[in-house]
Design a protein around this nucleic acid. Structure first.
Lengths: 193, 193
DNA sequence: CCTTAGTTGACACTCAGTGCCATGCGAGGC
DNA sequence: GCCTCGCATGGCACTGAGTGTCAACTAAGG
């Protein structure tokens, strides 16, 4: 069982996340100050920075569990699988989270649109994905023993996934994300063999 | 002929770029203030911001001519070419610039390593590439009439190119960039058909 | 010579982000 | 039950990015 202090900490963190998402979505990213977010969560500006290193991170870190899950998922995939199969399988994790996840699908979509529509946040997000891609490349290289080939495969796999997510967000969730990823991978998998 | 004022402006801009590249490469990005860069170029901090919107942009904008060239190059490619051929062809522009370009190859490499090695700059760079990728997708869509397919193709093409450049920078330029891109495209082109 | 447009420096200001220190509070030892 | 010890917090001061404003200067053209 987690200690009281730990649960308190999680509470403050959730409070900050929720306040931030609400304010940022309503007023826009640039127009919202950290003091506003902190005040809305009932803490000081200084405390905000004890939970998040930067304003962008309040949004980005909501997605970091997904990155962890992808890393972990790929590590436990059978080595007999091709890179294409393994990648397609682990990308199912964020898909499920976005479309049928706990925090409710509409919230996921709002977050996605906010992240992809705000230059400063998008830049940070792309950098995170880039980092994740590098790690995934490492995992693939460990399977095949061909580092460069693996990094190209990882790059292509992420490219397909990203194209699908952007299309999904741009269409306001009207199209099925799983299908979009399937289509993208159908195209990409020729290069992932 | 450009007016005196225009040439003066270009002079200041070059002065700022050069001072920035030198200082940032030596001291690191975070450790260098804009006032230092401005002072080294002989202007005030306020003037710096009249030339570049942010500290990252001094480095990023050195690459923006390449983005323009890629856009322009793709627009003038024969419509008979496949997306794979057209993409491979326009990516030759930055390759030539990096390996045999005017400002000398070593400088290109230093810039590449600085951009890719500094989180804040890398994030901005990835965002620029992302934007370019979107525009390229639009141009491809205009050829084929299949927007989603085109955006996946653009994403994959850029992924291959990026993987090659990163490998090139990581290897300190020891490997031939053109060959790396060829290898990556050999893999990717299956998906670009 | 005079006017106009564009460039610059100086100053003041907001806001992001960090370091430091004092205070408060829960947990466990005595 | 008291007393520390550790940790979270708030407040404060400070640096640096980035912006608005204004006055001074300068090239260009009538």
């Amino acid at each position: 069982m987690r200690s009281l202090a730990d649960r308190k900490r999680q509470l403050v963190r959730d409070e900050l996340s929720e306040a931030a998402l609400k304010l940022l979505a309503y007023q826009g990213f640039e127009e919202t100050t950290i003091e506003q977010i902190a005040a809305a969560a009932g803490v000081s500006k200084r405390t905000f920075f004890r939970y998040f290193a930067a304003k962008e991170d309040v949004l980005i870190e909501m997605l970091s569990e997904l990155a962890d899950a992808i890393r972990a998922g790929l590590a436990t995939r059978p080595a007999s699988e091709s890179p294409a199969e393994a990648l397609r399988a682990v990308f199912q994790i964020p898909i499920d989270e976005f479309t049928t996840g706990h925090p409710d699908p509409a919230k996921s979509l709002r977050l996605a649109r906010l992240v992809l529509g705000t230059p400063a946040v998008r830049a940070r997000y792309l950098d995170r994905q880039h980092q994740l891609r590098t790690e995934v490349a490492g995992l693939l290289a460990a399977r095949t023993g061909e580092p460069y080939r693996a990094s190209v495969q990882a790059a292509i796999g992420f490219a397909a996934y990203e194209a699908a997510v952007e299309r999904w967000a741009a269409a306001d969730g009207a199209e099925d994300l799983g299908e979009l990823v399937d289509q993208a991978f159908a195209q990409a998998s020729l290069a992932l063999a």
